[in-house]
Design a protein around this nucleic acid. Sequence first.
DNA 1: ATGATGATTAACT
DNA 2: GTTAATCATCATG
Length: 207
Amino acid sequence: MIVKPEFYATDTVTVARKLLGCLLIHEDRHGITSGRIVETEAYLRDDPACHASRGKTARTAVMFGPPGHAYVYLIYGMYHCFNVVTAPEGVGEAVLIRALEPVDGIELMEKRRGTREIRNLCSGPGKLVLALGISPKHNGVALYEGALRLSAPKKSEMPGEDQIVTTPRIGINVAAEAPLRFYLKGNIYASRPCKVSRAEAKRSVRS
DNA sequence: ATGATGATTAACT
DNA sequence: GTTAATCATCATG
């Protein structure tokens, strides 16, 4: 079942946790690819690490737009990250999808990623964008009516609260301690079980 | 196994 | 000019 737009219109942390187990699907002329979400991060309006925290700009406009749409942006000049816009319209919050467990179109993902190691196809935000063929043109599209969509798991496959591990986010320099990263316990497709982020390491060298 | 580095662009100071 | 929600590759223990 496709996730309805109302699902996204509430508290971003709740949405980030409930997105675990959902299926992200992308269909294009090359075929269909999909994966189960196993790792997410929440970005909140009063959170300095959140692009939208300093107000609406051309880049962050979609974060303030209707919930249930995609926010895709360029990172480090090389990769893109895929987010789901959350909270009511006008509130700039989103959930970063950090890792997927590959489900459909694995062969196509292998081609797009240039590797055959299944654990390396979608185990990171930049990787899953490549594997599913997501591009900047998806910035702003609705995730409940197009080629790029989100589907809820069957009840039997819905992860329980006790399966969710909470840790600090990865790769950020500000608000580095906030417990806003969520992943499925023991899942080998998460970007990493837990580790100090490089940003944190860098910071301790500087001080 | 862990750790450092380069690639490459847009937004922001 | 600097920074950034990253990744692959190369070096070192």
